[in-house]
Design a protein around this nucleic acid. Sequence first.
DNA 1: ACCTGAACACCGTTCAAGT
DNA 2: ACCTGAACACCGTTCAAGT
Lengths: 233, 233
Amino acid sequence: MAEKTEAPRRVALSRDRVLRAAVALADGAGIESLSMRRLSDELGVVPMALYKHVANKEELLDGMLDVVVGEIDPPVTGIDWKSAVRQRILSARQALLRHPWASRVLESRSNPTPVLLDYMNSMIGIFRASGFSVSLTHHLMHAIGSRLLGFTQELFDDTRTAEAMPAEVVREMARRYPYVAEIAGAASHDGETVVGPGCDDQFEFEFSLDLLLDGIERLRLRESTSGPRPVER
Amino acid sequence: MAEKTEAPRRVALSRDRVLRAAVALADGAGIESLSMRRLSDELGVVPMALYKHVANKEELLDGMLDVVVGEIDPPVTGIDWKSAVRQRILSARQALLRHPWASRVLESRSNPTPVLLDYMNSMIGIFRASGFSVSLTHHLMHAIGSRLLGFTQELFDDTRTAEAMPAEVVREMARRYPYVAEIAGAASHDGETVVGPGCDDQFEFEFSLDLLLDGIERLRLRESTSGPRPVER
DNA sequence: ACCTGAACACCGTTCAAGT
DNA sequence: ACCTGAACACCGTTCAAGT
């Protein structure tokens, strides 16, 4: 008898294929569209089939993040710590930009996967190998925070805020929140309201990153020219 | 006839009462337990009754955040910008610590509420009133990022990671991720693995905040002693 | 032993029927 | 005009029945 022609002959499922399909689905349709049921549809299998390759949805999300972290370039060796850290973080940022859902999912995780631990470990290693003390390195890791993985938590998206708003609303906004409007690039003069272009995210990211790295460099110089700070713990 | 005694005589619902109950529920049972249905149960009303006070769940979450932001102290006036910013951010941190779900919910919001815009506006105002240029202030706001509201996105929680783990697992972790273990306070010597205390979050927060504020101060001094930087946009 | 359809215990929200 | 029970269109996951 003829087989069903709808799904002509499916390649056997595998954890890898499940994860790839999940990443593709989240990239294309958005993370809110990623459900076990929808994903199984996409793969032409019954929902329960997924549970042979991932224990539950949490593990699926962990696996998806591992795919993204896997796209980050390995650290360049033989250069100064600042360049090495900077380059790697900017590479991480590229990976995160390719998968806009990843930063939000990352934030929702409770325990790091081995892949993420490897990434953190090699990042910390750059500092330690350059002579940073354990405790200073610890503090730095907290200070760099989510930037380590190439993203910053923006409190709100100021790039496209004003675009879709009627001029009247923009004017009212500028009146109630003059400083916000100024920063957002909405210059108000002669009663006329002009909405400037959204800001350059890449520039802002590098500005902030360099502000931190410069501060860190200063701390390292201080640490290496004097004893440990009294504040050490 | 006797009334039902289960819910003796409910106070009329109001937006305020709905929001307070939602905050209390999220505080007590966790944000994952907050559903429209569960919340209506808690208030002794039918789920649909909530929809007269909030348009949908998104608006409920926005309202809950407004409650939290409302707990942040107003800015202290008459002191230098650095102290003013520092104090306000530390006050925001206290509010966020009282409502552990708030930072995560905040990150999921797409558009800021008027209450949040007011907060941002007054924060920006501190910088502008102290002579920071519009563009430098813009960059700073990006650099301070989520710290403005008193939290940092921790990539993973290193305070309680090692506590619940069997000694064997800790030892294996220390072998595979030596730098991470070092930072996490797990010192390995003589084959013995000792797990140190979790780090002091308040110290780490202030360390990072001061690293940024010191960097910002240096930028301001540079800005005020020379013309605008070539990199301005 | 393996696979999976149906079911369970939930969601947020719509809507028509009831008062 | 107001209110709300039932329904809709979903979830993630369990489990027992089928092969």
